[in-house]
Write a protein that binds this DNA or RNA. Sequence first.
DNA 1: TCTGGGGTCCTAGGACCC
DNA 2: TCTGGGGTCCTAGGACCC
Length: 425
Amino acid sequence: MKAIVDCNSFYCSCEKVFRPDLDERPIVVLSNNDGCIISRTDEAKAIGIGMAGPYFKAKHLIEAHKVEVFSSNYNLYGDMSWRVMEVLKTFVGEGNVEVYSVDEAFLDLHGYSGTQLQRLANEIRDTVDKWTGIKVSIGMAPTKTLAKMANKMAKKNKTQSQCITILEPEEEIIAALKTTRVSDVWGIGRKYADKLNMWGITTAWDVRNLSEEWVRKNMGGVVGVRLLKELRGEDTITMKDELANKKMISTTRMFGTAVTDLCHLKEAVASYTSRAAEKLRRQNGAACMISVFLVSQEKIESPNFKHGPTVNAYTNLPQPTSLTNELIKPALQMVESLFVNGKKYKKAGVILSSIVPDDAIQGNLFEPGKSIGRSLMEMMDNINFSMRGNVVNFVSAGTKKTWKMQQSFHSPLYTTRWADLRQVE
DNA sequence: TCTGGGGTCCTAGGACCC
DNA sequence: TCTGGGGTCCTAGGACCC
């Protein structure tokens, strides 16, 4: 059996833990730059606030109903996430927890069955709540895809399910498949859902009864076949190693206000590059390739929002590296080559790819200074990590950061900064 | 009119996820 | 006026090789 444990309205819940006065009040959390709504409580949902909608469009509802608004505080959410995952590990052991995203984890439950599952689920739900203040929903089933389906059902009717749904005997699974729409199946997105509906395939049960050949031909080849098998109860999506390293690392941001100045653009890209390099060093990797892209601001008369035109460039590095200064140099050269005077830019990003393990780097006899660079990086990372912020940085990343994103409703760093510690009198 | 066959590697782009 | 950020996997097709 597999389980998925998913935190309810995670970002909102994190804010609520430290603001008990907001209990049962509608809350929303905004994306970077306060652009979109990315998390909302059931109370906010009930008012009619949609998911992932732009903030300005929901503003009238938010004001009319006195909804509490927060800018995203990733520092806080990351720390709370770590706490929740630690609790899960105490139940099934570290090796059986796969952290799938900031607010979700799969558990491998081989050996559990029947009433044991129910008892385990209850205990996990109650303990996570008691120790962290976060409420979770749990779905259990023979495969990851079916567990996701169970989880969705648990969330849909929280009072009846008590946030837990277990699909175990075959009849339970079939009944669940019959009431699940194709668009609610994990792995079926907008495109495939539309296509399936056009063919008159509307439920997960309908999908499960399709032939393997049809699915292979019409639903992305082997990916579709895997999905089909999962729905039939055949375990094909295995648990991933927690320490699996990223194959690509990127840092991209919208600007607070449009940037027209080459200097500011270079500052932003230098700053994103140092963030990306930090992530790269954390997994002891080195990149062979770096790419940079810029998105300009242009009026688009389309009803569905689209970003402006994007330009990009990449550089193959002479040898794999994780040193910030060695990455910033080509990044800035690319910015210069891409920049067009007079254009307004609203977003930029850096992507590090072709990542190899750091220890595989061949020493270069003609560059003896390399190890000094590496220890300097380590020192920077240690200081920045212990202070939970960008305390030490390269000058090229700028000091004023006029392009920085807007965050008007940021909450304190309750769990990671002494000065922000919650006080009780 | 005829125009080999088979393999590898790489990249761009499409689909999906949270 | 104002629309996030960070990933994964797979496929098709081009370049190149013998």
